[in-house]
């Protein structure tokens, strides 16, 4: 089974009422992949991550993890394998830390309450992650006392507490002040170098080029182009991609 893809999305359909978001989207990723998804706004990039996290119902298609069925459309219901879902982690745009808990408890809540990890073990692991991200001094602070960049690093550490096999990043720097973006991106680069499989939605094309092993351009409900960053961002093969990339880079300058 070594050749099984980490994640395989096949013929995905999704709509909100009359609005069709995905019309047969197909995409797969290997263990070593860091996928950056780009595309026009409203094109469902975030929805794709939410589906992979198991937060959204789908209309049709199926998703496999390591060759095992993860999310399926079964009759009128979306079926999600909870065991496989537990192997996926996600970081959100607005950090969504638990405001009533201090940083340490933000990290330990899920492993202690749902994975049966002992409090001592969870705290040790949490302190390890916080130290690694330079946040150990904030362990007993509350989220409201942290900067946006610090909060987002805590959110990443919180997701790592559950040892995910795949980590999803949904526009994690979009809500940050520009000077705080770098510290979050640095943490993500560190994870990339450590070999963490990631799926990333971002508007920052320079960061995309740096971190991606593959860039996926999704538009009109399907994958339009999929390849290494040098191809998709610098020399797109498909006219639609070229148009989008040129417009985005033109805006930057």
């Amino acid at each position: 089974m070594a050749q099984d893809k980490l994640l395989k999305i096949h013929n995905l359909h999704k709509s909100y009422g009359d609005l069709e978001i995905f019309k047969g989207l197909t995409l797969s990723m290997d263990r070593g992949d860091r996928l950056v998804i780009i595309g026009p706004s409203g094109g469902g990039k975030s929805t794709l991550l939410r589906i992979v996290m198991g937060l959204e119902d789908i209309v049709g298609g199926d998703i496999y993890m390591d060759g095992k069925p993860y999310i399926l459309r079964d009759g009128a219901k979306t079926k999600i394998d909870r065991k496989l879902q537990a192997r996926v982690g996600m970081v959100f745009q607005h950090y969504t830390l638990f405001p009533h808990l201090d940083i340490l408890r933000n990290l330990t809540l899920a492993p202690v309450k749902t994975r049966g990890m002992s409090r001592a073990e969870a705290e040790e692991k949490a302190m390890g992650l916080l130290t690694r991200f330079g946040l150990d001094a904030k362990a007993h602070a509350y989220p409201s006392q942290l900067s946006g960049g610090q909060k987002q690093r805590v959110a990443i550490a919180r997701a790592l507490m559950l040892d995910p096999d795949l980590l999803l990043f949904d526009e994690v720097t979009s809500a940050l002040d520009p000077e705080l973006v770098a510290e979050v991106e640095a943490v993500m680069m560190e994870l990339a170098e450590a070999g963490m499989p990631m799926m990333i939605v971002t508007h920052d094309m320079h960061f995309a080029r740096n971190i991606a092993s593959r860039v996926v351009f999704a538009a009109g409900g399907v994958v339009v182009e999929d390849g290494p960053p040098e191809q998709v961002l610098d020399a797109p093969q498909v006219a639609r991609t070229r148009e989008f990339v040129e417009r985005v880079f033109a805006k930057k300058r």
């Binding site: 909870r82 809540l109 309450k113 749902t114 559950l162």
Partner: peptide
């Protein structure tokens, strides 16, 4: 978003 986060972290039901 708090509910989404909890689902992503596997915190459900009574927890």
């Amino acid at each position: 978003e708090q509910y989404d986060t909890c689902r992503a972290l596997g915190i459900t039901g009574m927890s």
